[in-house]
């Protein structure tokens, strides 16, 4: 299960809507081993495409260096699909490189840049296998005790 705060959930949705019709992408980092997505980092989609996303290689390096220095790991890797459902494509599965991450997909196909609900789903992608998981939205992590 993915547990995520309301603020982070809303920020991912806002990013996806803002970048529509291009795919939006980013990471939510958290302390290593915590499984808590705490620090959202919006990334530039270097592909600038409605059907593909890719972190710029230099940005990627800086991001991982920074996470390393802070003892963080990518807890969530998110991106949007802008004309199709929020389900991992063949490409998404082939390129999924973080076996410990929650892969969040948001679909903006219904309302685009406008207000309105989006599909927001989360998956594990390991060894080519997709496993959808439940999402629990909380106000704050501390409230979990």
């Amino acid at each position: 299960m993915l547990t995520i705060t309301r603020a982070t959930y809303d920020a991912i949705v806002a990013h996806a809507k803002r970048d529509h019709p291009d795919e939006a992408c980013g990471i939510v980092a958290g302390p290593e081993g915590s499984d808590r997505p705490e620090r959202l980092i919006e990334m530039v989609n270097a592909a600038g495409s409605p059907t593909f996303y890719e972190f710029d290689s230099t940005d990627l390096f800086q991001l991982y260096k920074e996470m390393d220095a802070r003892d963080e790991e990518p807890v969530v890797v998110y991106h949007s699909h802008t004309a199709t459902e929020a389900y991992p494509s063949v490409t998404d599965v082939k390129l999924a490189g973080e076996p410990n991450a929650h892969y969040v997909l948001v679909s903006t196909r219904e309302h685009g840049n406008d207000e309105g609900p989006v599909e927001f789903r989360s998956y594990r992608i390991v060894d080519g296998q997709i496993t959808e998981e439940e999402i629990q939205v909380v106000e704050a992590f501390s409230s979990l005790g």
């Binding site: 409605p50 890719e54 972190f55």
Partner: peptide, 12 residues
């Protein structure tokens, strides 16, 4: 030397 998998994907 640092090796990192690209973070990439897409709808197709």
């Amino acid at each position: 030397v640092v090796v990192l998998p690209a973070v990439a994907g897409g709808a197709r």
